[in-house]
């Protein structure tokens, strides 16, 4: 089928099977290889993208379901050559090691920060909420501590509920 959708603010069209995974459409058809595959079963979160404003595992979305939808991948987080606050803080805090989980974590954490999901929380509550909200993203390198630090730091940079991070 012919698929027309918006990816990172651009209108894209792809000829594909409706059964193909969104993950494969992004990586193979659109060459957006920032989105990673770690398991193919919706467990690791490395393939996380935003679909119509919610974070999803792109390995569990059928291409057909994406027609007319709006998708943001890790490639769409930076604006005008400036990294998203979450990306900057992952770098600054040492929240990335091998990097395979980082795109999924960046997309999910940017969603958390931009939607203000931890806005107004004290530090301990915010940390607990981050651990809950990001529990679908497995990282085997960091022990998560420095990632939580990075998300907290990014949230402090960004006015809650705005797109100011971008």
């Amino acid at each position: 089928m012919k698929l027309a959708f918006e990816v990172n603010g651009e209108r894209r069209t792809v000829e594909t099977s409706p059964w193909k995974r969104l993950l494969d459409v992004l990586r193979e058809d659109l060459r957006l290889t920032g989105t990673k595959e770690g398991c193919g079963e919706g467990e690791c979160g490395a393939c996380t993208v935003e679909l119509d404003g919610e974070v999803v595992n792109s390995c569990l979305v059928a291409a057909g379901q994406c027609d007319g939808r709006r998708i943001v991948t890790v490639e769409g987080l930076a604006r005008g050559g400036v990294l998203h606050a979450v990306q900057r803080q992952l770098v600054a805090c040492g929240g990335a090691q091998c990097g395979i989980c980082t795109p999924g974590i960046a997309v999910c954490a940017a969603h958390v920060v931009d939607r203000g999901l931890i806005a107004g929380c004290d530090d301990a509550t915010a940390r607990a909420k981050i651990r809950d909200l990001l529990a679908g993203n497995i990282c085997r390198c960091t022990g998560y501590q420095l990632i939580v630090d990075a998300v907290i730091a990014a949230a402090r940079e960004v006015a809650p509920g705005t797109e100011g991070a971008r």
């Binding site: 919706g42 919610e54 974070v55 595992n57 979305v61 999910c108 990001l134 679908g136």
Partner: peptide, 8 residues
Amino acid sequence: GALQIQAR
């Protein structure tokens, strides 16, 4: 699941 699963 977690957030990604709950959203779908």
